[in-house]
Design a protein around this nucleic acid. Sequence first.
DNA 1: CTGTTAGCGCTTTCAC
DNA 2: GTGAAAGCGCTAACAG
Lengths: 343, 343
Amino acid sequence: MTTTKHWTLKSIANELGVSNATVSNAFNRPDQLSEKRRNDILAACTKLGYFGPNKAAQSLRKGKFDTVALVLSDSVEYMVSDPVASKFMKGVASVLEQEKLNLLLFSGSSDSVNAVADFVDGFICYGRPRNALLAEQLKQVKKKVVTVDFDIHRNASVSIDNKLAAYEVAKLALQSPADNVAILGLRLLDTHLTCRVYDLDLLEIDMSIAHQRLQGYLQAIEETGVTLGNDRIWNIPESNAEYARIAAKEALNSTPRPNVFLCMSDLIALSVLGEAQAMGLSVPEDVRVVGFDGIDEATRSTPPLTTVYQYSEQKGRKAAQMFVSDAVHAEVLGYELRLGKSC
Amino acid sequence: MTTTKHWTLKSIANELGVSNATVSNAFNRPDQLSEKRRNDILAACTKLGYFGPNKAAQSLRKGKFDTVALVLSDSVEYMVSDPVASKFMKGVASVLEQEKLNLLLFSGSSDSVNAVADFVDGFICYGRPRNALLAEQLKQVKKKVVTVDFDIHRNASVSIDNKLAAYEVAKLALQSPADNVAILGLRLLDTHLTCRVYDLDLLEIDMSIAHQRLQGYLQAIEETGVTLGNDRIWNIPESNAEYARIAAKEALNSTPRPNVFLCMSDLIALSVLGEAQAMGLSVPEDVRVVGFDGIDEATRSTPPLTTVYQYSEQKGRKAAQMFVSDAVHAEVLGYELRLGKSC
DNA sequence: CTGTTAGCGCTTTCAC
DNA sequence: GTGAAAGCGCTAACAG
């Protein structure tokens, strides 16, 4: 017969005429038996087609799963094609692979983390999940959690100083009190709509990165002596070329036309660049634009974008390392102002 | 006390004064008890902080895991930043998310699939894994397997007609028997080296996509009456700009200089484009180039690339759908010739 | 060093 | 509807 028998620890031990504890030890605790005996057993198992203790049973017993769930802020489908998220995932994957930990991708729009909490060792959570409920659950979950770019006040976290970075890049774009500023925000509102944000005061000031960046922009605006109209802030629900183009068009066609665009992602900034040029405007003469993130494409655009470069891959590595080492502190990573020609 | 007790099915049943079977049924088999009773139990559980049966235990018992491993051809780290692979993953993720199946990313350079075989329902395998052992293991594994762009002769598979596609795109590039052709192959050899492939005859003809594409190129070459020198084929180990540039430079500097480049990926073709232009050559006047895959960037290059466009996202969806529906046939998807200005 | 055994948390059969 | 009990496949404590 060619189909191999379905072996279990017990049946294989039986077959070999040894106790199941001995087989278990052969696989997990080399110090518990002689090397020769161990090798004999291992060899016999390979020959018979037993590849070691069943992982599911082992995990149930030990409460250890060798798997970490990467909770994305949005659907897996969307995140996997986002350049910033991809770099982050790359960083995470590189250290998990090295640590022989499995990587489970988990959508931030899922109903509940409880669906996976029972078979992972913990969570790395990239950005506040679209489904706010998940963040609540993560606060309670009895597993390791590392959050990135947001905080649930109970855990390890990694982020950058978004406010300062936003302030600095805005200062580069703003030049005179006469400047007319538009802010293209990313996820300022908990909605799927691209729309203007009229009432700044009504904005719930959470500590999402969008609000931190907004604070930075506002500080730069104030310092420059610029007046920000109450219809000069847009909300874009995802860092996505289509949504961004809608907002970019609307902003460019608003009166008076803004000459400075503070954009919360490079994808948004690139849309403004494209739309402005399509309208016959020159950058930076007519319109100055700054982005955020530092994606590759922003260095290749005409003109290259002035932006905040984040070390996304390093961020991913750091998050994974903190997970592995049971860190509990908040880590603040650096960033870099990238001077392009867009302002 | 604020920390919630750690509930189990047993303890919660005890607390509620019902049998554990009843609680289990309340969660999994609504037909086994009255609706009122069921709702009461469910409500009580939520209030007490019991979120349902432990998934690990449930899985062990049922042998069902609601998780599929996506085995990538290379490291997760590398694949996540590859535009073609990302699109594929996007497709896979979209249907798995909808089916409420978890997605585990698994490296094609891992030692063994056995590490995860015990806690997934099966595998979707994107491209022949870098570690050849994995393909062997997948042949034997007692779980569902869907392979993509290669075949292990026991399972469902999805692919395109690589030979025909390569033939067609090569025919576009080749114009006269006097053409001097170079082939920039992707993973023709099982090595990490960028190098020439001298002995075509020694190439082990497996049915990898690289060899299928090669067959197509060779047929077009023969039909056009072109003579292919025995030092005109290069091997590139990964679809990666750096490796590609090395090969592109070497090929462009070889004598006689090829005027037609058949490239097995767009990234490779874009490197040739870039290097040729850096050398002061015009495309397509001095050098004609065709790619394979149809990545976005290839439509934005100057000149836009002529290439084979694959519906990668659809490929991912199809693979996942076949997984879900227990399909066992081989599915051959279409492709599309994209006419750029590069030949 | 070996063998026995309780139990990880659950599902399912069975008799009531 | 209920409660008891076997068992998914394993580990670790314990006695020998």
